[in-house]
């Protein structure tokens, strides 16, 4: 067992532990924090995999932006307590069985075929330079399109977040102290 194997093993352990905590923790804020931990470990995986660009983007976009958004919403809505009622046992067993089945199927599929994936290590894979080149040539169209997708998402989020007068009047159980409007 050499050092890189140990490194990958430890990182994997942290990721799985974090993921378990996300799912099992009763307090949403703890979940978010665990998720951030998982994301950090995944970023570390990216570094190990020689995908520096992804590792940075992952930290910025996921751990930075999205998770902060989550936390922000949690705080805004005052959800930082154990509010979730206990689920019936049956539901959890069913969920475990479903997820377990999928896992078994996937693992069974990998078992025989993992060695068929060909290894071909090229020097500049995963570097910002090569990725950038590809992004602005071959992947220009999807890049532009995702920009437009962002516009649509932004409009949508604003639309949902803002409160128009007409709706205000209809609103029966208005909640005044929660005015989160700018999640876009």
């Amino acid at each position: 067992m050499n050092s890189s194997q140990i490194l990958v093993g430890v990182l994997s352990f942290i990721s799985i532990l974090g993921a378990m905590y996300v799912v099992l923790s009763k307090n949403p804020v703890h979940s978010v924090l665990a998720l951030i931990l998982t994301f950090f470990s995944i970023s570390a995986h990216y570094v190990v995999l020689n995908a520096q660009f992804l590792s940075v983007v992952n930290l910025i976009v996921y751990a930075g932006a999205i998770m902060v958004l989550f936390l922000f919403v949690l705080m805004l809505l005052n959800l930082n307590k154990d509010s979730e009622p206990q689920k019936p046992k049956m539901a959890s067993i069913a969920a475990a069985i479903a997820a377990g089945l999928l896992l078994v199927v996937m693992v069974a599929a990998i078992k025989d075929s993992a060695d068929r994936i060909y290894h071909n290590t090229v020097e500049d894979v995963g570097l910002v330079k090569s990725l950038g080149k590809l992004l602005f040539t071959k992947y220009l169209v999807p890049f532009e399109l995702s920009g437009i997708l962002f516009l649509a998402a932004m409009v949508g989020a604003v639309l949902l977040g803002k409160r128009d007068k007409q709706n205000e009047e209809e609103m029966t159980n208005t909640v005044t102290e929660t005015g989160g409007t700018d999640n876009g």
């Binding site: 995908a51 976009v61 958004l69 994936i117 071909n120 090569s130 990725l131 998402a153 876009g184």
Partner: peptide, 30 residues
């Protein structure tokens, strides 16, 4: 996969997933 196969396409796919997931999360939170 991308790193082991020495193919950059996979990493760009990841990039797009991240980007779009951010948009999706924003709408979802709204």
């Amino acid at each position: 996969f991308s790193s082991y196969m020495g193919d950059n396409n996979g990493q760009l796919f990841v990039f797009f997933i991240m980007v779009v997931a951010a948009a999706e999360a924003a709408v979802g939170l709204a």
